[in-house]
Design a protein around this nucleic acid. Structure first.
Length: 221
DNA sequence: GACCAGGCACATC
DNA sequence: GATGTGCATGGT
């Protein structure tokens, strides 16, 4: 039973690592900015960029909307891909101001499917970024998939190699209760175990999931 | 010095 | 629809 295995994995991870307190961020807006900045980037680099934005007093929708894009790129430089990410942050803010008066509170009344579709229409916001925003900034019951999610589930035979993003998201959403706090903690725990043990092309001694069957050889993923 | 990191858009086939 | 490439800093 898939749901049973998913529950077992969650318990093993939670028992080992405990609560992860995600998303690291003080405000709804900071969470959204972090979600864009962390694309294919280590979180410690994102923290430096966010620190710069705070020091420049630019971490609000109004300030960031008005900030010169060249200046914005300078501030977020430590997060890498700074030119493209400056554009992506601007495209989010342009959407917010042109359609919702620059107010995140105006998004709360949208249903989750509508909000997801609108986020995905923004250049620079893909599935993982949109779903991170939905779950961690808006508290919607959407399971966030990332490279770690794929690696762990493939290695333990829960899904076939090559499964796409939506298949992975359905694996969790259809086999777990629709619980925002569970989705929050589960995704964070998968990132934790991915960073510390379930790494590319590496065996994982000491991994909390070590005793579970591995149906896919490490070399393949 | 190589490899990796909490992706995405775009070109090409 | 699948695959390849550019984007870039900082830690291991």
């Amino acid at each position: 039973m898939v749901s049973q295995t998913l529950n077992e994995i969650y318990q093993l991870l939670f028992d080992r690592f405990g609560p992860q307190h995600w998303w690291p961020g003080d405000t709804q807006f900071e969470i959204i900015i972090g979600a864009i900045l962390t694309q294919n980037t280590n979180w410690t680099n994102v923290e430096k960029a966010i620190t710069n934005l705070k020091a420049a007093d630019c971490l609000s929708p109004e300030k960031l909307y008005q900030l010169d894009i060249t200046r914005l790129a300078e501030l977020i430089r430590p997060a890498g891909y700074f030119n493209i990410k400056a554009k992506r942050l601007k495209s989010f803010l342009n959407w917010l101001f042109e359609n919702y008066d620059g107010r995140l509170s105006n998004l709360e009344s949208l249903d989750t499917v509508r909000l997801r579709d609108e986020l995905l229409a923004i250049k620079g916001v893909g599935r993982e970024t949109a779903d991170s925003i939905l779950l961690y900034a808006f508290g919607r019951p959407i399971f966030v998939v990332d490279a770690y999610t794929a690696r762990v589930t493939v290695r333990h035979g829960l899904i076939e190699p090559g499964a796409d993003y939506e298949q992975l998201r359905e694996l969790f959403q259809l086999n777990l209760p629709e619980d925002v706090q569970l989705f929050n903690e589960y995704h964070a725990l998968l990132v934790k175990v991915g960073k510390e043990f379930c790494r590319p092309k590496a065996r994982c001694p000491g991994c909390p999931l070590e005793k579970l069957p591995h149906t896919v050889e490490i070399e393949y993923f």
